[in-house]
């Protein structure tokens, strides 16, 4: 290959970074496994779940846990694991007992998701691998969209998820702008030097609560492969895989995670992290009460960070000018949109219930009615 290129063009050397090689091997192995497992629903269900759990733990949970891990590097890994893992077990355990064997706090009881799949399409099992690759390409793709849209049994359900997520983005953006307009001057003056110990306690409480509320939304993404009413053995399988996965996440903390935190959240100061986590937590909790429709937490997170950037630029306390912040905001938003289109493409490819025409007719109508409902509830 190299010789061929050299013969016909400028001297070029094609190369792969070392960690990209291992990721590539992983991706190929995962696709093969998905391919072999797809015809057997009983196996495919657990393979899909494993991939989704990996994507959720290794990718998505960084949004909520990243700053927590980064600022607690000095603590023992198993202390953090027992704390976060314990909250996970309590949250899904509570749901399992109170929602009749469902671990998603009723998210999967919403119309269009209430029936567990009995047979799988290859792309449904492979969807989490697509997600991992897209994240590697720096696209903030929403797990909810890519996984849940491929399982939705009606286009209306997708429109509802979309409307709720967009409402989440808008609300997060405006809350982010408002809060940081108020506190950014103050923060710049007082948030200097080493943070007091009180902030660490506040961070543990906020991170723990956020993690729990986040799980109430996002456990649906992993559990969508499994039966809606899990028996004890299935529940234990579900809980233990994620619990052990979290253990590995904390054990191998460091380089890679640190990188994702700085890429994904831009926040390393414990005080800012606590405030952002707190707002994030309140928004997610509001939407949990709002309706049982699943939503994208990634969009809420992007909206919140965008709002914060813009507010800090207006107050001239950030690193960027207002124009630059708006540019970043638009870039993030357009990447999220690209991710959305890819998710919908996968959904149409996978899902026999969906076609392009039905999507074009039903989804925008449901989306519009969902958004107007959101604003009328807010009294606007």
């Amino acid at each position: 290959m190299k010789k061929l290129i050299r013969r016909f063009s400028f001297p070029v050397s094609l190369w792969l970074q070392k960690d990209e090689k291992s990721f590539l091997t992983f991706v190929i192995a995962a696709f093969m496994l998905a391919m072999f497992a797809t015809p057997y629903p009983q196996i495919a269900m657990w393979v899909g779940f494993l991939f989704a759990a990996y994507a959720a733990v290794a990718n998505d949970s960084i949004q909520t846990l990243g700053t927590f891990i980064a600022s607690n590097q000095d603590k023992k890994w198993w202390v953090l694991w027992l704390f976060i893992g314990g909250i996970f077990l309590c949250t899904v355990g509570y749901s399992w007992v109170n929602y009749n064997g469902d671990v998603s706090h009723g998210r999967l009881m919403a119309k269009g998701f209430e029936i567990a799949p009995t047979k799988f399409h290859f792309l449904q099992i492979a969807a989490p691998i697509f997600l991992l690759i897209l994240t590697r390409l720096r696209m903030p793709v929403s797990t909810t969209f890519i996984l849940l849209t491929s399982f939705a049994t009606a286009p209306a359900a997708i429109g509802k998820v979309l409307a709720k997520s967009m409402s989440g983005y808008i609300l997060a953006f405006f809350l982010g702008v408002t809060v940081f307009l108020v506190i950014s001057k103050y923060a710049k003056k007082y948030f200097v030097g080493e943070a007091k110990f009180g902030w660490s306690i506040a961070q543990w409480i906020t991170s723990g609560t956020l993690w729990s509320v986040w799980l109430m939304q996002d456990a649906a993404n992993i559990a969508v492969y499994l039966p809606r009413n899990m028996v004890f053995g299935e529940f234990m399988g579900f809980a233990m895989v994620v619990f052990i996965g979290l253990g590995l996440l904390f054990y191998y903390k460091g380089g890679r995670i640190q990188k994702i935190v700085t890429e994904k959240s831009v926040i390393t100061d414990v005080r800012f992290a606590t405030i952002v986590d707190f707002i994030y937590c309140i928004i997610l909790f509001y939407f949990k009460l709002y309706s049982s429709v699943p939503m994208s937490t990634t969009w809420v997170f992007i909206g919140l960070l965008g709002g914060r950037e813009v507010a800090m630029a207006i107050r001239k306390t950030g690193d960027h000018s207002l124009a630059h912040s708006v540019k970043l905001l638009l870039k993030d938003f357009s990447y999220a949109m690209i991710g959305l289109f890819i998710s919908i493409a996968i959904a149409i490819g996978v899902n026999d219930q969906l076609s392009l025409t039905s999507m074009l007719e039903t989804v925008p109508a449901e989306f519009a009615s969902g958004i107007s409902k959101f604003f009328s509830r807010l009294g606007l």
Binding site: F10, P11, V12, S13, L14, W15, L16, Q17, E20, F23, L24, V27, I28, F31, H121, F122, L123, A126, F130, I133, L134, R136, L137, A345, I346, G349
Partner: peptide, 30 residues
């Protein structure tokens, strides 16, 4: 001695994009 400078191109991103498109196309057509 060959003094021509060699351009190094990191191809992982192209590979990933190609894999995505290939797997999707095959899966949908199959």
């Amino acid at each position: 001695m060959n003094t021509t400078s060699i351009t190094r191109i990191e191809i992982s991103k192209f590979l990933y994009a190609a894999i995505l498109v290939a797997v999707y196309t095959i899966a949908v057509l199959a």
